[in-house]
Structure formats: C-alpha cells, structure tokens
Design a protein around this nucleic acid. Structure first.
Lengths: 165, 165
DNA sequence: TCTTTACGTCAGTCATGTTGACATATATCG
DNA sequence: CGATATATGTCAACATGACTGACGTAAAGA
C-alpha cells in the first residue's frame, strides 16, 4: 500500500496542514500550562500570577506599563494580581530614579524561588522537545512561531548573530 | 564587532533558548486567540465556545466524552457552553446508533458558518507564518510542538507518509 | 439483576477578565 | 508658573469559564 500513488488534492493538504497547526498550538498550550497551574493552586494563585512572576523575573526593574503592554490586560486586572504578589512578599516595587511616578518591579528572593519552581517544569518540557527534535527543527519552530506573533512583538526576540551556536 | 569571539557560556545559551521558547508560546497563543475572541464577543460567546465549535466541526459525530477528553474540563463546565450552542442552533445532538446513551455532536449549517468565520483568521495566520518560514521550518515546528504535547495525545497527529509532500 | 457508564443538572465558589469613574503624584510643555 | 498629560492606583459592578460536590436518568454490560 505504501507505494501506491494516491491522487492528492493540494488544497486539501493545505487545509489539513493548517488545521493541524491550530491543534498543535491548542494541545501544546494546554499541556504547557497544566503543570504550573497545579503548583499555583497550592498557593491559591492562578495562571495570571505566573505570568506576572515570569515576566518580572525575566525583566527585573520593568515598569507596570511594560507589564501591561506584554500581558494585554487592563490595569485593574493586573492590579489585583500584582497587589497580592507584592503584599505576600513575592515582588517588590521601588520608585523609578529618572521618573519617580514609575514603580519598578523586581522579584524578592521568595519570588525568585517560586518563579524557578514554576518555570522549571516548562523549561524541562522545552528541553525535552528541543532535544528530541534537534537543532534544525528548533530553528524552524522559532521561525514559524515568530510568524504567528503580531509583528509589533517580534523584536522582543532578537536575531541570534554569529555568536550564537 | 561581529568577528570578535565572545566567550560563551553554553549553560546560559541553553537557558536563554528555553526561555525564548516559553515566551514564543505565550505571545503566539495570545495573538492567535485575540482575533476570534473579538468575533465571539459579538455573539456573547467566549473562547470556550470556539473550542467546542472547532472540535465538533473537526470531528463530526463525536461524543460528549470525546470532547471532555480533548478539552480537559469538567462536564459541568462543558455543559453550560454546549447547552447554549445547542439551544441557539449551532450544534445538534443525536443519540448514538450503537450506544444510545451517547449524544453525537454535529455542527448545523449555522454552526459551520460560525466555525468558518472564526477559524478563518487563525488559518490565515498559520498560512502566512508557514509561507514565510518555508516547508522545512514547518516540519521543525511540527516536531517541536509534538514534543511539547503530552505523549498520550501525540497519536492525534498521524505521521505524514510518502504520500505527503 | 446489579453495576457501570454516558450524560445531565442544581448549587455554590473562585480566578480572571471587563467597563467606568475617580484620585494622586509627577513630568512636561507652552 | 500654570495647564495638561502620564504613570499608577482604587472602588464598584459585572461576565466568563473554570472548579467541587451531590444527585438523577437512561442505557449498556457483566
């Protein structure tokens, strides 16, 4: 059977390929978030808290505005989540030196520890997927994912120059 | 500067690569869902409705159990969403022929139309990303994404044999 | 017949998003 | 300096979509 040349409708193939992409994204995101969600639940937190902790950990000293731009939620939504994290000692705020209206955000030691615990599982998932797929596949993954992201946010992922790999 | 051999810490590179993966997934999912969300809001629906409509459209005649397994939510959560879609004429239920306890789900014509409208934007996004990235990158994307998905669900994405491409 | 399965429903709770209005401190511009 | 804009926060009300727990019905299967 494997040798039989089946008549192929290229439009059907394309449709199938696109739908598989949609589903890959759905399933990957579903499974990618499940493990941290379980940990967060122990703290009485949710996915929103993880996002805040993640991005503050990644960009120490970032402003509230920066965070709002990344998360694309309202300041009221962020406020509740961020307020809890500050109150419970995971994040600190300090006024900006150049613009004192700003509150620069940073993880505390406790926050760093939680961030590590949460993101560890996700890093492990990526590490396994990257390892199994190989370097070339990772480059392709990166290209396609960048193409899915709104153009405005692509510069967040700088080109890897000759120093890379 | 480009020729300068900078001392590279491979552990740092790996960490950076993994974090970029995490962020690519976050941003891609954020942008991938934004457009359909806006359309859904016009109907008073949310993302949960889209997921139901999508998977029923993709697997006509699927059971409620099938859907629960895919979505990984409780039957109570699904019930509300599915109930609305049935009531408002987007989905039909008919008893299974072999097992009459089952309710086999299908899109109505109206449901098919909404599905098309919603998924169209997402297909377009993938089509553009695939086109810009090239066939080889798409294959890499597929490999990495499959590696991110729980093993149990990987068989949902059958290998493309010699008939493909 | 008894048990399990597929599906549904009622009731309550929580996390996370929204809009709208208003407040305060600081920066910036004319 | 005074007016205006910006960064941030807060209160209130509401919607969505998840959850748990309990209970119910019809059909399948041992």
């Amino acid at each position: 059977m494997t040798d039989v040349k089946t008549p192929i409708n290229p439009l059907f193939l394309r449709e199938e390929e696109l739908r598989q992409g949609i589903e890959l994204l759905f399933f990957a995101y579903r499974d990618f978030t499940a493990e941290p969600d379980a940990i967060l639940a122990e703290y009485g937190y949710g996915r929103a808290h993880h996002r805040v902790i993640y991005f503050v950990g990644r960009n120490p000293g970032m402003t509230v505005s920066d965070l709002l731009t990344i998360l694309r939620i309202t300041k009221q939504s962020l406020s509740r989540v961020l307020g809890q994290l500050v109150e419970e000692g995971f994040i600190t705020q300090r006024p900006g030196t150049v613009d004192r209206r700003q509150r620069l955000l940073e993880l505390t030691e406790k926050g760093t520890e939680l961030e590590r615990q949460l993101t560890e599982r996700q890093r492990a998932r990526f590490a396994a997927a990257y390892r199994d797929a190989g370097a070339e596949a990772v480059e392709g993954f990166r290209k396609v994912m960048l193409g899915l992201i709104d153009e405005a946010d692509r510069p967040r992922f700088p080109q890897r120059g000759p120093g890379w790999r």
